[in-house]
């Protein structure tokens, strides 16, 4: 079983929900990213996603766009992010998230090989739909890295089945039509989507996009195996530093665990 799936399975087996945290690498700098990632693991994150900034992130809202732009303004390079990620994989499973052009220009084989060598467990590419995924999928399989698949509220059932057939690590369920960023979401609307996914795969389902508070995490987790928190963490790191990230993740963890304990 892959490291990502094994970690979530262990958490679920303990009667808890999974918590995945996203950080944009290099904002404000790579030292802060490393420190925040370690703080997140220490505070109870199951998985940390390290975002490699891309100049034109079409799936991202204002917070992550701004973080990526600032990281790039500082001259951040893909190779440096891979190195930094390698320094936190000892603390817990890490997935690398970036746009396809970053991988294509680094060289897909070279990128995946480097990620695997640094101890990363998976790759997440938000602008790589199933139809375009085959070349990268082959490379990831050879290096034992999970290529995370997405489903969205617009995905029809037959498509969900096809995507789920390829799912590995965890299935990334986008909460709403829209880009990343904190907003109010009625997670109960996802119930049929997730039910369809569960028919087709046993891989844990994680809901992402929009979750910014312990309350929202609990609401989302009621319908899934795990939640992904991104913009809120990135914002917290930018305004208050790595220690504050640890505090936010701890609050998310407490809320999820509390909701898991039936009175």
């Amino acid at each position: 079983m892959s490291a990502l799936r094994a970690k979530l399975a262990a958490t679920l087996a303990a009667g808890r929900k999974g918590l995945i945290v996203y950080l944009t690498a290099g904002c404000p700098d790579l030292a802060a990213t490393r420190e925040a990632a370690r703080a997140a693991f220490a505070a109870g994150a199951d998985i940390v996603e390290i975002g490699i900034p891309f100049s034109d992130p079409i799936a991202d809202g204002p917070v992550i766009q701004k973080a990526a732009a600032e990281a790039l303004k500082g001259g951040l390079k893909t190779a440096a992010v891979l190195d930094a990620a390698g320094e936190i994989t000892a603390a817990g499973p890490v997935a690398l998230m970036t746009y396809i052009n970053t991988i294509l220009q680094f060289g897909p084989e070279r990128f995946v090989a480097a990620a695997a060598a640094k101890g990363a467990a998976g790759v997440i590419v938000p602008d790589l739909p199933l139809e375009e995924a085959a070349p990268l999928q082959d490379i990831c399989r050879r290096h034992n890295l999970d290529l995370i698949k997405f489903i969205a509220p617009t995905s029809p059932p037959e498509r969900i089945a096809r995507i789920c057939a390829q799912a590995e690590g965890f299935l990334y369920c986008v909460s709403t039509t829209g880009v990343t960023g904190v907003r109010a979401v009625d997670y109960s609307l996802l119930a049929p989507l997730i039910a369809a996914a569960r028919q087709a795969t046993a891989v844990p389902v994680a809901i992402g996009f929009g979750i910014g508070s312990p309350e929202a995490a609990v609401a989302a987790a009621a319908h899934a195996d795990a939640v992904i928190v991104g913009s809120a963490v990135v914002e917290r790191l930018a305004t208050s530093g790595p220690t504050a990230v640890g505090q936010l993740v701890a609050a998310l963890r407490r809320a999820l665990d509390g909701a898991g304990e039936r009175p």
């Binding site: 396809i100 199933l130 969205a152 029809p156 498509r159």
Partner: peptide
């Protein structure tokens, strides 16, 4: 049928847009 002109083209978009 995949939107390729030789090596070029394709559909590199978030899943949300694929059905549309």
């Amino acid at each position: 049928k995949n939107g390729r002109f030789g090596a070029y083209g394709g559909r590199y978009v978030p899943e949300t847009l694929m059905p549309a």
